[in-house]
Write a protein that binds this DNA or RNA. Structure first.
Lengths: 222, 222
DNA sequence: AATAATCTTGAACGACTGTTCAATCCCCGT
DNA sequence: ACGGGGATTGAACAGTCGTTCAAGATTATT
């Protein structure tokens, strides 16, 4: 007896279509300015279907994160496991930085690619995100692991030095996911923010060197 | 004969009160989700007065930038002049990085302080910002000067290396203005993002070292 | 003192918001 | 062949959105 399977095609299709259509809309407009009607039109379904499948606009929003984040977090955890296997602390720094950055950029493999990155940044810069608690629920645990990994690479660093290092890296990463063509404009089209492979290369080089060679004379004492 | 002066107190007061009240509202909600009624209530004036004084919601939004950005840009230009006076290129890097970062953080002196920083980040991560053109008009010129200053510090760098360096720094800076308490949460309250003096100290240390000691083997070619 | 210019006000406009509801559809197991 | 349950639909709900308007209040100029 096969496991009872519901109507496969049209059912899954409609819900998935809404989920897929919602991503670029939330990316372009942000949570508040995105409207369920824009999403329903993009998905080719009546508005009511969104509330039926996801309960509310916020439910749909959260469903996007629940669909996307596990992949990223698993990759980060795998990267961290790889880093911890490296006994040389100097070489390990490189792996920890890459464990943070590369999983986010590898989003480009999937269809809406940059859209989810933009959603993350908008959620991060939205004070209202606290009420939704998405970061607390889905991102913070791995963030904890990353700061601990940094602390292990630099055993004599203070807590502040560790956390500021993490957030400096985090910020550098977010700007790439945010770019709306400003990089191309400032560089006369010579540099493109959507070339993520290159972005990761440059950013990792700078951040790794920054961690290894930072001047601690002003920050060491507490 | 004195220059014709309009009614000084109540007039300037109402317009200024709207401008001041709008800042925290836009910071908390973003351009689209912020409503003219929230602003008018915060300012204690009827809604219609906003359109009378600023033409439209977007006019008010732009007025905030026109009030705030000149101060920041002037400070950056002054910092760059100081940097160019430093003949030692290695020491000059430090001054260029500080010319980028410190003027933004010195916002804390004025009343709404962090609010405008948040507005900037939200505008930066909003694809709709292109239609408003605020960055193009008010930020890009000085951004050009900054990238040129970096290029002068590292004469053998490629255009891509220069621009990625600039954007890495820019991103690191934005995350601090964005933070909604996540840093404190991740560090059990030990590190606070609103301690901007300390933030600048840590970030400059990392970024300066990142620029000076980055590994160029993978990015040098082309 | 009278006129003009500017500022302020409350109410109203049509358009759009997220969500709900009853009715209808379609496919599955019996 | 038939009933049942999840999926789908269009219409409607009560609010809120940015903006406009005519009227009134306040100040400046003649």
């Amino acid at each position: 007896m096969k496991p009872m399977k519901k109507r496969v095609e049209p059912t899954e299709s409609a819900k998935a279509r809404i989920l897929a259509a919602a991503e670029p809309v939330f990316a372009e407009w942000g949570f508040d300015a995105a409207t369920v009607r824009k999403i329903s039109e993009a998905a080719g379904v009546p508005v009511a279907l969104i509330n039926y499948h996801f309960g509310s606009k916020q439910g749909l929003y959260r469903a996007i994160f629940e669909k996307r984040t596990p992949t990223i977090m698993d990759q980060r955890i795998a990267g961290l496991r790889l880093a911890r296997a490296e006994p040389d602390l100097d070489r390990r720094v490189d792996l920890v930085v890459k464990a943070l950055i590369y999983p986010m950029f590898s989003l480009r493999g999937e269809s809406p690619s940059a859209d989810f990155g933009r959603i993350i940044v908008r959620e991060m810069s939205d004070p209202q995100s606290e009420t939704r608690g998405i970061f607390r629920d889905m991102f913070d645990p791995v963030a904890q692991m990353l700061t601990e990994a940094i602390a292990e690479c630099f055993p004599d660093w203070t807590t502040k030095e560790v956390h500021w290092a993490y957030h400096t890296m985090l910020g550098a990463m977010t700007i790439v996911m945010t770019d709306n063509g400003r990089m191309a404009r400032l560089s006369d089209g010579e540099v493109r923010a959507d070339d993520w492979e290159e972005a990761a290369l440059h950013m990792c080089a700078i951040l790794v060197a920054g961690l290894k060679h930072r001047d601690r004379t002003l920050t060491r004492g507490n």
